[in-house]
Write a protein that binds this DNA or RNA. Structure first.
Lengths: 166, 166
DNA sequence: CAAGATACGTCAATATGGCTGTCCCATCTT
DNA sequence: AAGATGGGACAGCCATATTGACGTATCTTG
């Protein structure tokens, strides 16, 4: 795998160090951010999978099971376990769909809202510090690159989440 | 409350939606990027944990076990299993440290290098496309924000990885 | 040199969060 | 009435992580 020291104008090769930098920063950044909520989750005996469900239910009240499945991209069985546990702890409640009574609309209880908000504080603290240190210009770039990592078929779903943000 | 060191308009309390957007984009971007290598890993019966080890050994040949443990932030036992499996498949080899013979210096075999390079193609394809779509300015911002997510005590480690990038 | 610290390995037990496959029920659609 | 869809549930499996304790080789230091 000998690499010439003066590379030709192959854009793919030229980007290697930039790509490695991105891979590494994404790895460390993502894992550190998720670690920031572990303590709060542990207090309730919950894990990150529970947080992901909580988060997206908080984000889109009256989400259905199948919508949540598409967002999380896990199996019905895996999600079932998580939702059962969240229900048992009184953090999530469901009601039958209005239009389609087979559906279950997911919502956070008051307790669930409070807990999600508590976890969100940790996320906000970390991200806000990073945003502040980097500056608004950088934040825009940060978003743009991440958007480019999301495959076309998923982009509508992500955009929908952010649709009704004020 | 006198906080002399922060500017008056310090956006510590960013608008919530900016933080949620970052959380979501990081989640989707990171998970989609990691999924891009699953197929390649599956062909060898390996998982993402194996890739992380492979990746960092590729990045820093002659890495020691304890350095790798610090990077991955997992336990010795977890890493032990991963390295055993990589060794059995002839992807990673070790030799005793030169200065300190208790150490094991980790290296990829030729096979290991080829495999890591193959996986890297998928990462590069995804990230390079995102970089190209976003533009160089954005890439810089992307890096800056992610750097800000890494706690001070880990930053030296990450910087060391990128020290000898050409 | 003896004592202790360090680098690494290993055992056993456990938790978490995924997966597949199969079958079921209620409800909506045609 | 038949079929499609939303959701639940069973059984079993796998990957990846954890803790705690103990062992061995090697380096460092009083």
């Amino acid at each position: 795998m000998a690499v010439p020291s003066s590379p030709p104008a192959s854009p793919l090769f030229l980007r290697e160090h930039e790509v490695r930098r991105g891979v590494e920063l994404l790895f460390f950044g993502y894992t550190r951010l998720t670690r920031s909520i572990d303590e709060g989750l542990n207090e309730h005996g919950l894990g990150r999978a529970h947080h992901r469900a909580l988060y997206f239910i908080a984000r889109q009240p009256d989400l259905t099971i199948s919508e949540l499945l598409r967002i999380l991209a896990i199996t019905k069985q895996s999600l079932g376990r998580v939702l059962t546990e969240l229900g048992e702890r009184g953090l999530v409640e469901t009601r039958p769909g209005v239009i389609d009574r087979r559906q279950k609309l997911l919502r956070l209880t008051e307790q669930g809202k409070a807990f999600e908000a508590q976890l969100f504080v940790a996320l906000r603290t970390s991200l806000a510090a990073a945003y502040a240190a980097a500056g608004q210009e950088s934040v825009t770039g940060f978003w743009r690159v991440l958007e480019g990592l999301i495959p076309d078929e998923d982009r509508a779903m992500v955009a929908a989440l952010q649709k009704d943000m004020r």
